[in-house]
């Protein structure tokens, strides 16, 4: 589904990513791990179009997506969350999801743009109800998203991605478990698995190795901008290069 070939990114003189290649197959949950500063978040930024590649290419369903602006990448079916939590804090939980559900009219022409003007965004949506019910946020739906607990906000950010329109096929999660209590982590893991069964594909950057082991089919390990290992979690864990990268020499 997603194929990265020789992806390279420089910041000034520093090579943040040095010719990294790997694949994410449809319906898989792939983990992207590595020590701090190994280039994981940089990789997500490159895929989602927030920064530009200095070399290599990224294919999504056979089409090149590197060089596309972030909104175009999103419209092709790639959604993402952020390491530092991102949602729309002044909107209520429900309004966050409704916003994401909006058809992306802008970008074609003025007429379609203006067509979204008269619509007052309050229509009921069974789909949004179901999602909120599923993660147990239904009774919080009218509260300001910014007023929820950190873990709940992370769930909202996750639901936001699922609600995107057009629906994302590939979802990039940047440290979904960071700063979240164990109960909430379990909710999150269940949700990811649930949506994988419904055909979604995930690429997960995560520090918590337990989450990675529980969740992922394949793990890609980065260190200093290079791919040092790839394979099933249990195997990667035994890899000497990985041990060294994580625990030093």
């Amino acid at each position: 589904m997603l194929t990265l070939t020789d992806v390279t990114k420089r910041f000034g003189g520093i090579l943040a990513l040095d010719g990294v290649s790997f694949q994410v197959r449809a319906g898989c949950i792939v983990g992207l791990i590595g020590p701090n500063g190994s280039g994981k978040t940089v990789m997500l930024n490159l895929i989602s179009g927030l920064s530009r590649l200095d070399g290599g290419q990224i294919l999504f369903r056979g089409d090149r997506i590197d060089g596309l602006p972030p909104y175009a990448v999103a419209r092709r079916g790639i959604g993402r969350t952020f390491q530092l939590l991102k949602l729309f804090p002044d909107l209520t939980v429900r309004q966050n999801l409704e916003l994401m559900r909006q058809p992306r009219l802008m970008g074609s022409n003025l007429q379609t743009m203006l067509a979204s003007l008269p619509r007052v965004a309050t229509g009921p949506s069974a789909e949004i109800d179901a999602l909120l019910e599923m993660v147990g946020l239904h009774d919080k739906q009218r509260e300001r998203a910014g007023s929820l607990s950190y873990g709940q906000q992370k769930l909202v950010a996750f639901l936001n991605v699922l609600c995107m329109n057009p629906e994302p096929e590939l979802i990039l999660l940047d440290e979904p478990a960071a700063g979240v209590n164990p109960t909430m982590i379990n909710t999150l893991i269940r949700q990811v698995q649930h949506f994988r069964e419904r055909g979604k594909t995930f690429l997960v950057v995560e520090h918590d190795l337990k989450v990675i082991m529980d969740l992922c089919d394949t793990v890609v390990v980065l260190d200093h901008g290079r791919r040092i290992a790839e394979g099933p979690p249990a195997k990667v864990r035994q890899d000497p290069a990985v041990m060294e990268a994580y625990f030093g020499r």
Partner: peptide
């Protein structure tokens, strides 16, 4: 509230 998020959610924020 968050332009980067709006952008990665598929909104062409500049327009």
């Amino acid at each position: 509230q968050d332009e980067t998020l709006a952008l990665t959610a598929g909104f062409d924020t500049r327009r």
